[in-house]
Amino acid sequence: MTLSEGMIAEILKIGSDRDSAEREERVRSSFFAAVRRALRHIPFMDDVVAAYYCALDPKTPATTRGILIAALAYFVLPMDLIPDMLLGLGFTDDIAVLLAAFNAVRGNIRPEHYDRARETLADF
Rank of each mutant, 00 (worst) to 15 (best):
A73M: 01
E10V: 01
E5I: 12
L98Y: 04
L98H: 08
P111K: 07
A73R: 01
D17I: 06
F102Y: 15
L98I: 13
A96N: 13
S16E: 03
L86N: 10
P83V: 04
M7V: 06
S4E: 14
T63H: 14
S20C: 10
L89K: 14
I69A: 10
F31Q: 00
D84L: 05
A50F: 11
R37K: 12
R36A: 13
I11F: 06
D46P: 00
F31D: 00
L121V: 04
A101D: 08
L89E: 13
Y53V: 12
Y74W: 02
L77V: 04
V48Q: 05
V48R: 05
Y53E: 12
G66Q: 05
P78Y: 04
A38L: 11
L87E: 15
I67A: 06
A38E: 10
E119G: 01
D17F: 03
D94T: 14
P58H: 02
R40E: 10
D80V: 10
G6N: 14
L77F: 00
S4M: 12
F44V: 12
D123Q: 15
I95L: 07
D57G: 09
E5L: 11
Y52G: 03
M85A: 08
Y52I: 07
D47Y: 09
V105M: 05
R37P: 00
I95T: 13
S30N: 15
A73Q: 02
T64E: 13
A34K: 07
M45Q: 04
Y114G: 03
A9I: 02
V35F: 10
N108V: 04
S16I: 05
D17Q: 09
R40S: 13
R37T: 09
T120K: 15
P43M: 09
M1A: 13
A38V: 11
A62H: 06
E25G: 00
L86G: 03
I95C: 01
